[in-house]
């Protein structure tokens, strides 16, 4: 069972774990796309989850796909960007 989110960013990790119940954790620099932790069918939901957790609108016109590749890059791009993810 994924842990209950304790910070806004944890909501992103929790969403990924909920989508991948066989996983207990997600590496901070694990490629979410290449490793199919976010599949093509749920990308829109994934974006909305990040937007909701970060309380921001992701500008799709200027979005760099690399910003969505790992937990660390997501944190850096859409959250504070200073604290590295260790999970």
């Amino acid at each position: 069972m994924p842990e209950t989110p304790t910070t806004a960013f944890d909501e992103v990790t929790a969403w990924i774990l909920a989508k991948n119940p066989e996983r207990e954790s997600v590496g901070a620099d694990e490629d979410l796309v290449e490793n199919r932790l976010v599949d093509s069918l749920s990308f829109v939901e994934f974006i909305f989850t990040i937007e909701q957790a970060a309380d921001t609108e992701i500008p799709m016109d200027t979005l760099d796909l690399d910003d969505l590749r790992t937990l660390n890059s997501i944190r850096k791009a859409f959250f504070d960007g200073r604290t590295p993810v260790t999970g």
Binding site: S40, F43, V44, I47, F48, I58, M60, D61, L63, L65
Partner: peptide, 12 residues
């Protein structure tokens, strides 16, 4: 929605 179009463009 704009986000969905964005996903079709950027991700797909």
């Amino acid at each position: 929605r704009a986000t969905e179009i964005g996903v079709f463009r950027k991700i797909y």
